[in-house]
Design a protein around this nucleic acid. Structure first.
Lengths: 240, 240
DNA sequence: CCGTTTCAGTGAACGGTGTTTACGCAGTTC
DNA sequence: GAACTGCGTAAACACCGTTCACTGAAACGG
C-alpha cells in the first residue's frame, strides 16, 4: 500500500515534526527562541541531527517563512472565497481586511517573514501573496480614470516589468488576463496602494503608532476607503 | 580648571568610546555585530568591563537607540532650518523629505531603532522626533477644512490625549500654542499622514516594495503630495 | 541469506555569545 | 599612610550554530 519505504516515512514524519516544533516556538516565544537546540529538545533528539534535514539554521528559518506564507495565502484565500459579492471592490476590500486580520493575529510570524530578507530578486513574500490574490479582482475593476501620462517616466521600465509579473500571476489563477486590463497607470496606483496598506499594517503590528490607540480599526478602515477610491474601486454599496 | 577628577574624566572618555565603537559596528556590520565582546575588542578591554557602564547588552542597545534618535533629530532640525520659506507647507515637506533622506542614509540605525520595542508607553521614537519638529509648522497651517464630527467616536479619547501631547511638544519648542490650532479632526489627519509617511519610508528602507524599483523617489514625492493635500498643506508654490 | 551500502542520530568538540563572580590594582579620600 | 572606591581582568557558566568521527539500523545486491 504505502509506496514509500519505512525510512522514507520516518523521515517525512520527522521533518513534519521539525516544522511544527519550530512554528510552536516562534508563536510562543518569538524568533529568538527558534534555536536548533530548542527544536531538537522538543523532538527528543540532538541538535546536530537537524543537519540531516536542513543545511543550516538560516535554511530552516527560510523554510519556516515559506510555510507561514503558504498558511497566510490559504487564510486569505478562504476569506476571499467567503466574500460572496461579485463586486471587485468588495473582493479587494475583503482581501485587505483579511491581510490585516491575519497579520494582527500572527504577529510573530509576520515579524519573522518581514525581517527575513529574501533573495534580493525583489520578491517580497507578503506582496507576492497579496497581489496574487487581489490581482484578479483588481484587474476586473474599472481601468479607466487614470492616464498613462501621469506615471513618472523614470518608473516606466520598472512598471512594465512589474505589469508583466502581475499579468502572469493573474493568469496563473485561471483567470484569462491581458495587459489591457492592467494599464500602466493602474499598476502604478496599485503599487502605491499596496505600499500604503502594507506600511499601515506593519506599523500597527509592530506597535509603531505615535500613541496608544485603544481601537485602531477605524484608522485602518478610513485608510482603506481612501485607498480603494484612489484605485477606482470605491464600491458605493459599502461606503455609507 | 577641569572640575572633574581624573577618574571621572577617564570614565566619561571610555563611555564615549563605547558608544562610538557600538555605533561603528552597527553601521559597518549591522545589529548582530554589536556584541559586547566586539565592542570591548575595539577598546582593547574585556567584555565584563562594559558592565561597569551598562547593566546589560539590552541597556547598551537602548542607549545606542537614544543616541541615534538624538542625531536624527539634529539632522532633521538642520534640514528644517535650511528651509528658508516661511510657508508651513514647505516646512512640513522639508521635514518629511529630511526624514526619508536620513532613513535611507542610515538603514542600520533605522532598523535598530525600528526593531527595538520601547517601554510600552506608546512612544515610538521616530514619531516623537518627527512630530516634535513638524508639529509647530503643522499647527501654523490652516486648521479649517475638517469637521470634528468626522473623527470616529471610539478614537475621541485617544485623540484628546494625543492632542495634549502634541500641544505640549509644540509649546516646548518655544512656539506658543494652544489646542485651538490643533483641532481634533486635524490631529486625526496628522496621525493618519504620519502613519502613511512612516510606513512608506520603512518599507523603502527595508526593501519591501513588491518589485525592484530603480528610482523610488517619484513614488515618495507622489505620496507626499497626496498626503500634504490631505492635511490641507498643499503649497501651490511647490505643486507644479 | 549474507555482505555492503546508505543514512538518521549521537557525543564530543570548537568558537561564539551574554552574564556572574572573585580578585588585583590604581585613584580618591581622610 | 591607611581606608575606601571603582575600573578592569581572568575564569567560569550556560547557551548558541556548526563540524566531525562514529554507531547502529534500514535498505539493497548478489
Amino acid at each position: 500500500m504505502t509506496e514509500a519505504t519505512r525510512r522514507e516515512r520516518l523521515r517525512a514524519e520527522t521533518e513534519r515534526e521539525i516544522r511544527q516544533a519550530a512554528r510552536a516556538l516562534l508563536v510562543e516565544s518569538g524568533r529568538d527562541a527558534v534555536t536548533l537546540r530548542a527544536i531538537a529538545r522538543k523532538l527528543g533528539i540532538t541538535a546536530p541531527a537537524l543537519y540531516r534535514y536542513y543545511d543550516s539554521h538560516d535554511a530552516l528559518l527560510r523554510q519556516l517563512c515559506d510555510d507561514i506564507c503558504d498558511d497566510m495565502a490559504a487564510s486569505l484565500h478562504a476569506d476571499l472565497a467567503a466574500e460572496t459579492s461579485g463586486e471587485p471592490g468588495c473582493k479587494v476590500r475583503a482581501v485587505c481586511h483579511a491581510f490585516r486580520r491575519w497579520a494582527l493575529g500572527h504577529p510573530q510570524e509576520f515579524a519573522l517573514v518581514f525581517a527575513s530578507p529574501r533573495d534580493p530578486l525583489g520578491a517580497d513574500q507578503f506582496g507576492s501573496v497579496f497581489l496574487r490574490l487581489a490581482g484578479p479582482a483588481i484587474a476586473a475593476g474599472p481601468s479607466g480614470e487614470h492616464r498613462d501620462e501621469e506615471v513618472p517616466e523614470v518608473l516606466h521600465d520598472d512598471l512594465v516589468r512589474f505589469q508583466q509579473t502581475l499579468v502572469r500571476a493573474v493568469a496563473e489563477h485561471g483567470v484569462t488576463a491581458c495587459a489591457d486590463m492592467l494599464p500602466l497607470a493602474k499598476v502604478y496606483h496599485v503599487i502605491q496602494s499596496w505600499v500604503r496598506l502594507y506600511g499601515h499594517v506593519a506599523l500597527e503590528v509592530f506597535g509603531r503608532f505615535p500613541f496608544v490607540v485603544s481601537n485602531p480599526e477605524p484608522m485602518f478602515d478610513n485608510m482603506l476607503d481612501q485607498m480603494l477610491m484612489d484605485i477606482g474601486l470605491d464600491d458605493d454599496t459599502h461606503v455609507r
